Amino acid sequence: MNQVKITVLKTTLDQELAAQYGASGLTACPMMEAGQVFYADYAKPEGFCDEAWKAIYQYVFALAHGAGKDVFYFGDWIRQPGVAICSCNDGLRPVIFKLEATDLPAKLSYDPIPRKA
């Protein structure tokens, strides 16, 4: 398993929907900024939005486990192997992410195999 590079491409605010449904003073996502970079494998990176992670973790997991060798689905979504463009699930102010497979080994924070002392 390898790490996946997650880059925040942009934060957005759908003005029309925000005017109709959003709270007063709603702005683009205050947690993420364009250009931020995170690395992940099986776990949410520190400082990453919980809701955004729920929306993209399946793609991160797939890329971390080698799905980056081919294009996703049938080549009718992303043309570059090892890349996925995803967004969080906030319908008024989605954040757009670029996920990229890397050759960096995953950093397990625990030992999955019990060892004798």
Rank of each mutant, 00 (worst) to 15 (best):
T11N: 06
K10F: 11
Q80Y: 09
F97Q: 05
S24V: 12
K54E: 12
Y110H: 02
A43V: 14
P114A: 01
Y73W: 13
Y59W: 13
E16P: 08
T27C: 10
C29V: 03
C86W: 02
L99F: 06
G66H: 07
Q15E: 15
D14H: 14
L26H: 03
D90E: 06
Y110C: 01
A106G: 07
A84D: 04
C86A: 15
H65N: 15
K98G: 02
D41T: 07
A34N: 05
K44L: 06
G91I: 06
W53E: 02
P112H: 02
S24N: 07
C49T: 14
Q80S: 09
P45E: 11
N89W: 08
A117M: 01
A84T: 03
M32T: 03
K10A: 12
C86G: 00
Y110K: 00
Q36D: 13
E33I: 00
C88T: 06
P112Q: 01
I78R: 05
A18V: 15
Q15G: 10
D70Y: 08
F97Y: 15
Q58A: 12
S109F: 01
C88D: 12
C29I: 01
K98F: 00
A23M: 11
M32D: 07
M32C: 14
H65C: 04
K44F: 04
K5W: 08
G75Y: 06
V83Q: 10
K54C: 07
A106C: 05
V71P: 01
G66N: 11
L99A: 02
T27L: 12
D103A: 13
L104D: 00
D41K: 01
Y57D: 13
A62G: 12
K10H: 10
Y42R: 05
T7L: 11
Q80G: 01
F48E: 09
I78F: 11
L17A: 13
Q36V: 11
T11R: 15
C88G: 05
V71D: 03
A55W: 11
G82S: 04
F74S: 13
W77E: 06
E100M: 03
Q80V: 15
Y42C: 04
I56P: 10
E33F: 02
I85S: 03
P114S: 04
E16I: 14
Y110R: 00
L92V: 05
C49S: 10
P45W: 13
A117N: 03
T11W: 03
D70E: 15
M1I: 03
Q20H: 10
A43H: 14
K5S: 12
C88K: 05
P30E: 09
G25C: 08
P45V: 13
K116L: 06
M1E: 02
D76L: 04
I6N: 09
F61Q: 08
I113M: 06
D103E: 15
L26W: 06
R79T: 11
D70P: 01
R93T: 00
V71R: 11
Y42H: 13
K44T: 08
I85D: 00
Q15A: 15
Y39Q: 11
R115A: 08
Q20S: 05
K98Y: 02
G47R: 11
P105V: 00
N2M: 00
P45Y: 12
T102S: 06
A19Q: 14
T11Y: 04
A62D: 14
L13A: 08
C29D: 07
W77I: 14
L9Y: 02
D90A: 09
Y21R: 13
I85F: 11
A28D: 07
A67D: 07
Y110Q: 01
L63F: 05
F97T: 05
P45I: 08
P30A: 05
